[in-house]
Every structure is written in C-alpha cells, then in structure tokens.
Amino acid sequence: MYDAIIAPFVEFSFMRRALVGCLALSLGATPIGVFLTLRRMSLTGDAMAHAILPGAALGYLVAGLSLGAMTLGGVIAGVTVALLSGLVARTTVAREDSSLAAFYLISLAVGVVIVSTRGSNVDLLHILFGTVLALNDAAIFLVAGIATVTLFGLAFIYRPLVMECFDPGFLRSVSSLSPVAHYSFLVLAVLNLVGGFHALGTLMAVGIMILPAAAARFWTRDVTPLLAIGMTAAFLGGFVGLLLSYHASLPSGPAIILTAGVFYLFSLTFGPDGVIMTRLRSHHHLEA
C-alpha cells in the first residue's frame, strides 16, 4: 500500500513537484471551470486554449524555452482574443460564440505558422502536451501564483459574477459592474489556461478545468458546494493520475485528465442527479 501510493512521492522529487502543481491547478483552474460550465461556456475554455498558442510560440521564438516570455505571450494572445470577441459581440449582430470561434481560429493558425517557421515538431508537442513531470521551481511558483491570484480575484468578484451568470439583465439594471465581472473573469480564465499549459499542455489544461466542474454538477444544486466538489475532484484526479502514469508508464498529462474523465463518467452514472438515481427517483413520487 505504502509502496504503491506514498513511496513514489517520497522517493522522487519530480513526483512531489508534479503533485504540488496539480494542487495549484485544482485550486485555480477548477473554480474557473465551474463558472465556465455555469455560463454555458464549457467549450470557450477549449477555444481560448488554442488562442494562446501564437503568443506562447512568439515568446518561444524570441526567448527560447523561457517561462516568462511564453507566459507573457500566451496571456497577451489569450486576452486579446477574449476582448476582441467580446467587443465584436457587443457592437455588432454577431454572437459571442461565432466571433470567438473566428478569432481563435485565426490565432491558432498564426501560432502553428510561427511554430513551423522555427521549431521542430518536438517543440510543438511540448507546447501542446505539457510537462507536468518536469516542473521547475519557476514553473511551480508561476502556477501557484496564478492559483492565488485566481482565488482572491474570484472572492473579489464572486457576488457580481454569480449574478452575471444567473441574471445578467438584473445586474446591468442595478449596477455597472457587469462588464467588470465578465472581463475580469475572462482574464482569470486566460491566466489559468496559460498556467495549465506549462503543466499539462494547452490541450490537457482545459481538461482539469472542465471535467471536475462538469462532474460536480451531478452531485449538488448549489454554487458553493459545486466549487468545493470540483476542486477536490480535480486534486484527487491529479493524485491518482500521477500514480497511474508512474506505475503504468503513461504520459502524465493524459493520465490525469483520463482519471478526471473516469470520475466524470462515474458521477454521470451514480451521482444524485446522474442517470441511475434520476431514474430510480421517478418511480417513487411523493405525496405533495
């Protein structure tokens, strides 16, 4: 038991670092994912993850495998795409989903072109699939820093953000904080995707955001427990996923996301609002 579960983390510092990285991601990225799912923007995370690519690639082109340059580039690219698509949606007939799709596709194409002019395919794979088992100090501080900023940021905009998700018309009628809540949330989402891509890669970073959040929805009907369940599930997914990748020699990022995926399927099936419980309940209706 000890050998299987604890020993890998005691013996290998890269496993400990990876675990700390996962903890930070589940504290930061997953609450963002909860609000993304609540706002029916689950796929927006995916789109934004692609939008980050040219910035990260440009950072890589200018400064090599530099954490700072790639982070800065990614954040700038992500925020630009988010703001542009929001602006287009608010000032023209286009809806936010179509303008976001347009801008992220342009961004992604630019990113791939940049990567192909200089780097080899190995570099592209590096960006796409991440390096959770090779997190250095700087990367851990970055991911932990982003988690900290996210938690404080969410606490700061929590009430308006919930109102913005639930009844944006009402928030606009009583306060001018609606755009503040919306755009700060998008910036936090971009930050977390950038943090996630250092650890898990752009493709897998979205997984740790959305899967635990989507799974939590089958267990509760209130926002606060949704956040708690999502974060716990995300961390457990990281823990189990790392062990899985260690013992079965699987790539760590996909192993973590697959674990979260298994939890999602379990919740979908057995959660109180999942498939089975909903069926069972409907056979026993109440008196009043």
Binding site: I157, F166, S175, V223
Partner: peptide
C-alpha cells in the same frame, strides 16, 4: 428576463439580490 432557469441557485439567494443597493458586492 435573461434568467437562466437551470442555474443552481436557491429562491432565497435569488430574492436576496434585490438588496444589492445596500449590500453591494461585499
């Protein structure tokens, strides 16, 4: 209204939003 009927929020919390002018964000 633009209310999302599927949003996980209680009647109490929804009605409490009416106090916004007094409570603001914090």
């Amino acid at each position: 209204s633009e209310i999302d009927q599927g949003f996980p929020i209680s009647v109490f919390d929804m009605v409490a939003m009416g106090l916004w002018r007094k409570t603001r964000a914090f």
